[in-house]
């Protein structure tokens, strides 16, 4: 199993642990009786996390008039049932309802909904707005103004969504960053997004492995009548779109410290970033220079390639070739061609 919430010990932050306790109590009351395993599944946590929380709730309560905790002022559970992995709360203290959302929690969900508005037909816009209104009403303060425009989707997005839901293979022409186009036949597994960009994660039949495809590099999309051979549940997908750990070419990048985020997946989490004067440096691994060249060419004045010389020259040549299409600016000396 993966995911933070299933890690041994459950939640890592005290605020998360408190929220979990405040959420578990009303759930247990509403269920009247529920098994440890069902509660664990419902909250997406381990059974151990549920057990520890129930044991803590069972000894918690309010201090009585003499500032001591008396039995009648504490929660209690049916201990015999708990031995049989069943949870029954027999005495309540202070709280019995779900807590309100905080302003930030509500605004995170509302902004997330706005982003999802462009997703396929399953969801209509009236449902979105009534949900957003409900969240705002369920928050302790007015949700903060964090607003997101709907994700960009297009025609191929809808057809991939259709193939995903019906479990059909897809075929398309894919043009990679080198400009080479190739016909692919894949089992679609998942549609991932990264802000305004969408990616198809799929089992590539010719490569015999999982590949990530940018939707805007895909042409001639066709939903075949062949059922998929690899189901999404059979294939482990990491949360990061690109795995660079197996690549062998190392490139040294230099950038303004605040621009680290702009380098995205090229600088995976955990990469060592060193400081050279006012700038940062990081060594990253790449399969080839094509993607990196594009990235750096889009970050003029913000980032540059330091090493190796071949990579530096690749970026330079990319820009030199591009500039050749424009007349020299007034006052600018024409470039003297190297012999």
């Amino acid at each position: 199993m993966s995911g933070d919430q299933n890690a041994p010990g459950g939640f890592h932050h005290a605020q998360d642990k408190l929220t979990f306790l405040l959420s578990l109590v009303p759930y247990l009351i509403q269920q009247t009786q529920v098994s440890v395993s069902d509660a664990a599944r419902h909250f997406g946590v381990s059974q151990q996390t549920i057990r520890e929380a129930v044991l803590l709730i069972a000894v918690s309560g309010v201090p009585g008039s003499d500032s001591n905790y008396q039995h009648g002022d504490l929660f209690d559970i049916d201990w015999d049932a708990f031995d049989e992995n069943e949870i029954i709360i027999t005495q309540l203290v202070a709280i019995d309802d779900s807590p309100r959302f905080s302003a930030r929690e509500a605004s995170a969900l509302i902004a997330g909904l706005q982003y999802l508005q462009s997703l396929p037909e399953n969801v209509d816009s009236a449902a979105y707005s009534s949900l957003a209104a409900k969240l705002a009403r369920g928050a302790s303060e007015a949700p903060s103004q964090v607003i997101v425009s709907p994700a960009a989707t297009n025609d191929s997005f809808a057809r991939i969504g259709d193939a995903l839901s019906r479990g059909m293979q897809l075929e398309f022409d894919y043009r990679d960053s080198k400009g080479q186009s190739e016909h692919r036949r894949v089992d679609p597994l998942r549609l991932d997004s990264d802000d305004d960009d969408w990616y198809l994660r799929a089992w590539d039949h010719s490569r015999e492995s999982v590949r990530t495809f940018r939707l805007d590099r895909l042409d001639g999309l066709n939903v075949t009548d062949l059922p998929i051979e690899h189901r999404p549940s059979d294939v482990a997908l990491s949360d990061s779109l690109f795995d660079t750990s197996g690549e062998h070419t190392t490139v040294v990048l230099e950038f303004r410290p605040e621009a680290l985020g702009l380098l995205g997946e090229f600088v995976p989490e955990g990469t060592r970033v060193t400081r050279v004067g006012e700038l940062s440096r990081a060594s990253v691994r790449v399969a080839h220079f094509h993607g990196l060249t594009r990235l750096v060419a889009g970050l003029a004045g913000v980032a540059r390639v330091v090493d190796p010389p071949e990579a530096r020259r690749a970026v330079r040549q990319w820009a030199v070739d591009a500039r050749a299409a424009y007349p020299a600016a007034p006052g600018e000396h024409p470039t003297i061609a190297n012999a």
Binding site: S23, Q30, E105, D195
Partner: peptide, 26 residues
Amino acid sequence: SRRALLKLRSLGTEGSQQLIGYAPRI
């Protein structure tokens, strides 16, 4: 968002199975 989900789960409603093939991210 993690804490908002816990509060949502406290209501006891299970989600339906649609939209499973999407992993949107901002």
